[in-house]
Amino acid sequence: MATKLGDYTFEDFGLIEEFGHVHPSIPEISENTLAIPGRRGLLSFGTNVGAKHFSFPVKVFVSDRYERQRSKNKLVAFLFDEYMQPREFKLVFDYEPDKYYIAKISNQITPEMLFQMDQFDVSLVANDPTKYFLVDADEIRMGSHIPVRSHVRPARHSFVITNNQTVKLMNDGNLAIRPRISISGTATSLTVRNTKNNKTFKMTNIIATKPIIIEGNTYMVTEGGVDTFSKLLGDFIDLIPGENNISITGEGINLDISFKYRTEFM
């Protein structure tokens, strides 16, 4: 087994990762409900999706107790920063090497100190329970370093638009994602619509000296590097799992448009 904590494995700290770790398939969930007297059952107001918690049984099998302590100290120095705060890192499992969580230590480490070894559990938490693909979709190339078992496909993500047309974007994950959209060039008016869910936005008076960046995840729109949220009229575009046809129409359009995103999984 070779679970990766950032750029390291447990072996790099002088530890042995044992079998039997905990890797939840879904995060914590809790229902928002309301009981009404005289009414059977509960009214549901949606579900809260929480964190994922991981646990790894680990041991240090060295007869020298001073060396055992040095191994544990190396691990602690990695898990915490210089201000004694838990450090976040990419958590990658060897049976799913193309995806990662952002995790950190979540509980006290209490070794059982035996005659020739120490054994303990390392508890981690991913407060964002999403699994992310290793690289952005536009960086996937044939023959690249992407693990061979990955179910992702190389595709175009940058387009030259000089007339009304529809472009295809693939979301190979199982979660909806909001891409970073970069627009440069000129257009009197512009309408961008995902025909899969009809999410649409419009813009007017796009000029070459002020490229536009739309950050869907952070609800930010900049024009020429200046925050201009009012430039966008309508919705931020979502990419639904599977094939998404993006309709790009307008007047006087002569644009370069690119979409940047990282595939996400439950």
Score class of each variant (00 low, 15 high):
residue 1 M to T: 12
residue 6 G to L: 09
residue 17 E to R: 02
residue 21 H to S: 05
residue 22 V to W: 07
residue 23 H to T: 13
residue 23 H to L: 09
residue 25 S to I: 10
residue 27 P to C: 03
residue 34 L to Y: 15
residue 38 G to S: 09
residue 38 G to E: 03
residue 39 R to T: 08
residue 51 A to G: 07
residue 52 K to E: 06
residue 56 F to S: 01
residue 57 P to G: 03
residue 61 F to I: 10
residue 63 S to T: 11
residue 66 Y to I: 09
residue 68 R to A: 08
residue 73 N to L: 11
residue 81 D to C: 03
residue 85 Q to R: 13
residue 86 P to E: 00
residue 86 P to L: 03
residue 86 P to Y: 03
residue 89 F to R: 03
residue 89 F to T: 02
residue 91 L to N: 00
residue 93 F to E: 00
residue 94 D to C: 11
residue 99 K to R: 02
residue 100 Y to V: 05
residue 103 A to K: 06
residue 109 I to Y: 00
residue 114 L to A: 13
residue 119 Q to P: 13
residue 121 D to L: 14
residue 121 D to F: 13
residue 123 S to N: 15
residue 124 L to N: 09
residue 127 N to V: 09
residue 131 K to R: 14
residue 132 Y to C: 04
residue 133 F to Q: 04
residue 133 F to P: 05
residue 134 L to G: 04
residue 134 L to K: 08
residue 143 G to T: 13
residue 144 S to M: 11
residue 144 S to W: 11
residue 145 H to R: 08
residue 145 H to N: 12
residue 145 H to I: 10
residue 148 V to T: 14
residue 148 V to Y: 13
residue 155 A to T: 01
residue 163 N to I: 11
residue 164 N to I: 12
residue 166 T to C: 04
residue 166 T to V: 12
residue 167 V to C: 07
residue 169 L to H: 01
residue 169 L to T: 00
residue 171 N to H: 04
residue 175 L to Q: 04
residue 177 I to E: 03
residue 179 P to F: 03
residue 180 R to K: 12
residue 194 N to D: 05
residue 194 N to K: 01
residue 196 K to Q: 15
residue 199 K to V: 07
residue 202 K to E: 13
residue 213 I to K: 05
residue 219 Y to I: 15
residue 220 M to E: 14
residue 222 T to G: 09
residue 229 F to I: 14
residue 231 K to L: 06
residue 234 G to W: 09
residue 234 G to A: 13
residue 234 G to S: 04
residue 235 D to K: 12
residue 236 F to M: 07
residue 237 I to W: 08
residue 239 L to F: 03
residue 245 N to R: 10
residue 249 T to D: 04
residue 251 E to H: 06
residue 252 G to E: 00
residue 253 I to C: 03
residue 254 N to L: 06
residue 259 F to W: 02
